[in-house]
Computed example of a mutant assay.
Amino acid sequence: MSADLEFTNAKALDKDSIYISGSLDSMPAYSQHTRLCILDFQANHLWSKHDVDWWNAGLEIFVENDDTEWQLLALSNEGSIEFICSSRNPIVEKIPGAGVYSTDAKGWGYMRRLRQIGDHLYAVGGAGQVYKRLGANHWEHMDDGILQLPTVEDRLLLADINGATEDDIYICGGIPGAYGLEGRLYHWDGKQWSTLILPTTERLTAIHVDDNKKIWICGTNGTLLFGNWINGFKDLSSIDDNQLFYSLTKFNDRIYLASNLGLYVYDGTAIKEVRTGLVPELQDANVIDAADGVLWSIGSKDIARFDGTTWERIHHPDNPPIGGSSINGGKP
């Protein structure tokens, strides 16, 4: 089946390959259906894809123990995780209790993000759900003090989890408050969670870990925070910034931010729009990610990569070309 796609998630694998999820334009919004696609310039077939009957909430690479083989992971909003690797058929695990309509759902809500930190996988979701994978089909709560009752009205919606080590982890999100969904940030020190003081009330959406002392967090209304749990966080955004930042990453000593208004970069002084030289310019960006010396930008319909010198737009075969199948631009 071929149909127009709206890209929803992405994970950069290396300079020549990326894992992308998308929803079909022909189906209602947030339908329980996702197309998972792999772009690989080194493969015999540029694109490979398969469809699943659930909504994708996150993508991740997982290297288990001393195994050097990648496993590509896709998390459903109901808490199922598909594992794909070249040496075996795909397998699926389910986080017990997660989700809304799953038969084992406890009422906490949908899952939102999946990450490998250290040797383990971690996942977060609604009502303060935080899980750690201890082994195959062995997921356990690690949300003591954060997990809410399923009946709570003001629900904590966790959006991301990331950390330098497994005893230095951050989770972020938002909870209803006087100013709408207000940001929340927590830190795990290996024993317990602590709530961190924020310089903003804006909802937080994503975390990038540079090292254990350099943590970058983005959010609504142009929010960009920098700091750590020991020294606190500083708000680097200005009152003129009104972008909704979905994700962020570091590339060539700059922080790039994906937003509903396009691609932005923090150059150490201010947040500025990235001009790629592509025709047309990037209109939005859902995900920004870097791997193997290449920066990848994924918008609702647009795929582009940057090698530090030149931007290139990449055509997905399920969508009409944007300004041609592939266009090279100039410097940002």
Rank of each mutant, 00 (worst) to 15 (best):
L181F: 14
Y186W: 15
Y186T: 00
H187D: 11
D189S: 09
K191P: 00
K191T: 07
Q192S: 13
W193S: 00
T195K: 14
I197M: 08
T200Y: 07
T201M: 08
R203E: 15
L204D: 09
L204C: 13
L204W: 10
T205N: 14
A206S: 14
I207A: 02
H208F: 07
H208G: 02
V209L: 02
W216D: 07
W216I: 04
I217Q: 10
C218M: 05
T220K: 06
T220W: 05
N221S: 09
G222Q: 05
F226N: 15
F226V: 03
G227A: 05
N228Q: 11
W229P: 00
I230L: 10
N231S: 14
N231P: 00
N231W: 00
K234D: 15
D235V: 00
S237K: 03
S237R: 02
S238C: 01
D241I: 05
L248F: 06
N252Y: 05
I255T: 10
Y256S: 11
Y256V: 05
Y256N: 12
L261T: 06
L261D: 08
G262Q: 13
G262L: 14
L263H: 02
Y266K: 10
T269K: 04
E273K: 13
R275G: 08
R275N: 11
T276Y: 12
T276V: 09
G277T: 04
L278P: 12
V279H: 11
P280W: 09
L282S: 10
D284E: 07
A285R: 13
A285N: 11
V287I: 15
I288Y: 09
A290L: 07
A290P: 03
G293A: 14
G293P: 15
G293S: 14
